[in-house]
Design a protein around this nucleic acid. Structure first.
Lengths: 244, 244
DNA sequence: AGAATAGTGTCTTTTAGACAGTATGGG
DNA sequence: CCCATACTGTCTAAAAGACACTATTCT
């Protein structure tokens, strides 16, 4: 910024994606096996470098979403998660990664990557508990993404992003239960979710299940922020702090 | 990432700071007048390019905090706000900016900048209403920062960052009133704020004011997240959406 | 005593939590 | 008729909102 001959350093910019979805009532994250060094053969978040100098960051995220996950922008929630730029995080040099959080409804299996040997949905518990080793600082990024999702379920309509365009209340409850790892009372959930203004709106038809009474269908309402918020049950696994 | 001769593009990385504080019961943001092109003479957020290739992002934020605002890390809350990387945002080329949100208690006036002609606290309303023109996309960044602060006041102990290490309950209420632009009932606020576990803890002495009964002093508690959260009164200025 | 600010108590309304019964489809 | 799932009520406990009084310091 000065005229004394100093020039600011340049960095490589990467975009990484934390794509979350629900499978068998558990939260999964999409991981791809790296085909090149560094961390060849280790699983990592889908992502890559900026395509060209003039590519917008959000466009790059959409491009990776399509290339590595085969997901089109339709019905996929995408938001910026944060920047990860610790100096030593990439052995190739100074690489700063912009992480995006994507929430997708359960989709048909196919996930074919271009520059990834293998792509697959992995339960987030397996990643967070350390059972699965990830490249770079991607475990931390996954952890932050999951925490973001958990938190935004309280105050925003993010849960609807895990569902298709039409969903039942029981489905929506399943989202909350899976992401928060809790059990909720269906009766109180019905009452609560329908009392929050603009959260969900009923649509005509009903869904015919294999067995049991057909359920009413809803779609996401107009309000993105929930007032009052959905309340997460107190987890008995909370930390106490010392008094000085 | 491939071996076909393509090399990923490099970008310039900047760090910008949204520093918020309270002055005369109003939220202010620190702006500096730019001494060089582009936007010479226009006010902008304090910030600058990465010092060297191996500088950590958070370190860079702390450095700018000291250089441009004269603030040491003590008693200053600093968190990442987001990345701003639209292709055309900087006429000098592809500059990606990592924005940090800083919350500081009211401090002695002096704010002496190095590469800024003039630095000063500006009411955020003046910035957000467009009364003050800012360089680059900095008005948007300020807007995001303010919104982040407003939101986190509900669910975290961020309000204590606006106060010094010791504060009274009335002071804390003033923070909520200023940031949210609302009036709160002192009696309900006293009850509420003391019932939230780990939010504030009493310390021995009392503060002697110029007039009136001395107030008890508190300090920030151990818990960073508030359960249950502080509830923001419903603003009558909320948007409605159409029904399809 | 009076002014000014700090702090406490009570009542009412709303919301959350726990729990049981009825309704509607397909065999 | 039985099963499985969808939905509706009711009671109770806790929290939020509205409001009035007492307490402590200084001049």
């Amino acid at each position: 910024m000065n005229d004394d001959g100093w020039v600011p350093p340049q960095v490589l910019l990467a975009v990484d994606l934390v794509i979350l979805t629900l499978r068998e009532s558990r939260m999964h994250v999409l991981l791809v096996e790296r085909g090149v060094e560094p961390f060849r053969g280790v699983r990592a978040l889908p992502g890559g470098f900026l395509g060209h100098v003039d590519e917008d960051l959000l466009d790059a995220a959409h491009r990776e979403l399509a290339e590595e996950a085969g997901l089109t922008a339709d019905h996929v929630h995408l938001e910026q998660l944060g920047v990860y730029g610790a100096p030593g995080r990439d052995p190739r040099g100074r690489v700063v990664s912009v992480a995006y959080l994507a929430i997708a409804p359960r989709l048909p299996e196919p996930v074919a990557g271009t520059d990834a040997l293998e792509a697959g949905w992995t339960p987030v518990d397996a990643v967070l508990s350390g059972g699965e080793r990830l490249a770079f600082d991607h475990r931390r990024i996954v952890s932050d993404g999951v925490e973001r999702a958990r938190s935004k379920l309280e105050s925003t309509a993010l849960a609807t992003a895990f569902c298709g365009p039409l969903f039942t209340i029981a489905e929506l409850q399943g989202v909350y239960e899976a992401v928060w790892s809790v059990r909720l009372d269906p009766r109180n959930f019905y009452r609560k979710v329908q009392s929050v203004d603009g959260f969900i709106e009923p649509v005509g038809p009903r869904r015919k299940p294999e067995v049991g009474r057909p359920a009413r269908l809803f779609r996401a309402g107009a309000h993105k922020t929930l007032r009052p918020p959905m309340t997460r049950p107190v987890d008995s696994t909370d930390e106490k702090a010392v008094e000085a």
